[in-house]
Computed example of a mutant assay.
Amino acid sequence: MTVQNLVSSDYSVEISGLEKRYNPQRGGEGSRGIEDVSFTVPSGEFLTLLGPSGCGKTTTLRCLAGLETADRGEISMNGRPVFSAAARRDVSPDARPIAMVPQSYGIWPHMKVFDNAAFPLRHGRTTYPRDETRKRVLAMLEQVGLTEYADRWATQLSGGQQQRLALARALLCEPEVLLLDEPLSNLDAKLRAQLRAELRSFQQQFGVTTIYVTHDQGEALAMSDTIVVMNRGRIEQIGTPNEIYDSPASRFVADFVGSANLIPGVTQTAVGSGDRVVDAKTAVGVVRCERFTAPPVLPTAGQELSVCVRPENIRVTAGVPDTETANRFTARIVSSEYLGDRQEVVVAVGDTELRAHASAHLGARPGDEVTVVLDPEWTIALWS
């Protein structure tokens, strides 16, 4: 038997029209937790629910776990419904094929490491004889680098070791779906970066379908196959990390995921169905955008928009422009911060300030005039 055999990978999750409201008053609807949340998780995929505090990501995860009961919608796991408001079906948490790692890890301080890990094999959905339990637990502890700590009290482990123990115990539940609720948030930045790589490696090794909750955009971009960006109980965008970062569907996504300059303006000309370029009138001048997410109704001339450009897609050079090309403007250095491999600068084009990444050897100081070029290929028009 190999450790990989412990987890089934032939699995998927489907959520449709999920809605949850809190504290409804008589005759009223109450405050919205989540509304019309729908997405599918293919077998073996790592999906992240990303958003700020209060956006509904943890509520969604708790509905998946059966710890919250939604007011509307359906949840299926491997084609089997575990929740349906219409059919009044709500499978209890212990009967759902899941394991969950909470933010606090849920490690039992009165148990040793081995006993913490062995708990689901002794008291879970499927139990095993003592010899088989020991074999499985030791094999899993070896995979997460905790074999030498098997006889220690759980409280004697570091934060990173406790996180690994919580993951080991969850995987020993033989879950078809692994739910992770901000499991790295209590760790320092360096350890978080190390453990997110380990966590992703474990997930790929075991092939378990995983749904991960975080407000940390760096974690989401580094670990995910798919990201679901949430805001105020609704889904803003679903896509791969590249799609979310390079082609945000709204101002919120552009501003929340990564660093973005958002320049208000209006559409210069109406947008046709076959158009791939948008010219926008803004305070810095006419900006050409070669990226945009087509809205349901094509924008007309004069319609308000935001031009989005990431700092790394702005080129800054010393001196003033000697030619007139698209998205080339004269600017002034407002501030600069030397970071070794680059300078992070704030430049002013008229009264509009933009953040940009410049060469570490840029020969300009605050107050100097420079040329900035907003790369049209990576400049995005957003109407929502």
Rank of each mutant, 00 (worst) to 15 (best):
T267S: 13
L262M: 07
G319E: 05
Q268Y: 05
R315L: 11
A249N: 00
R315Q: 13
P295L: 00
F252D: 03
A326S: 07
V257P: 06
I333Y: 04
F329T: 00
V309K: 02
D246A: 12
G272W: 03
S250H: 02
L298S: 13
G233R: 03
I238V: 14
R251W: 08
V277E: 11
N313A: 14
D322A: 15
V316F: 03
T325Q: 06
T282G: 04
P248H: 09
G285F: 01
P299E: 01
D255F: 09
S247A: 13
F256P: 10
V271D: 00
S273H: 13
V257D: 05
E290A: 12
A283D: 04
T323M: 11
G319H: 08
A326G: 02
F252N: 09
I238A: 12
P311M: 08
S259R: 13
P311V: 11
T325A: 07
G258A: 09
R332Y: 07
T240V: 08
A270S: 15
C289N: 03
A294K: 15
S250T: 13
G302Y: 12
R328Q: 11
V278Q: 00
Q303R: 15
N327F: 00
R251V: 15
G258N: 11
P248Q: 09
V277Y: 02
G302P: 03
V271K: 04
R276W: 01
N313F: 14
E304V: 07
I244S: 05
T325I: 03
N327H: 01
F252E: 08
V297P: 00
V286D: 14
T293E: 02
V284D: 01
S306E: 15
R232K: 10
E243C: 11
R232A: 07
P299R: 02
V266I: 06
C289S: 09
F252G: 09
G302I: 03
A326E: 00
T323C: 10
V287W: 01
V277L: 13
G319A: 12
A331Y: 05
V266G: 12
S259N: 11
R328I: 01
V277C: 13
D275V: 14
R232G: 04
D275C: 08
R251T: 14
D275R: 11
S336M: 15
S259D: 14
V297I: 05
A326H: 01
S259V: 12
A260F: 04
T330Q: 11
N242S: 10
G302V: 05
G319I: 15
A249C: 00
A249K: 00
E312H: 15
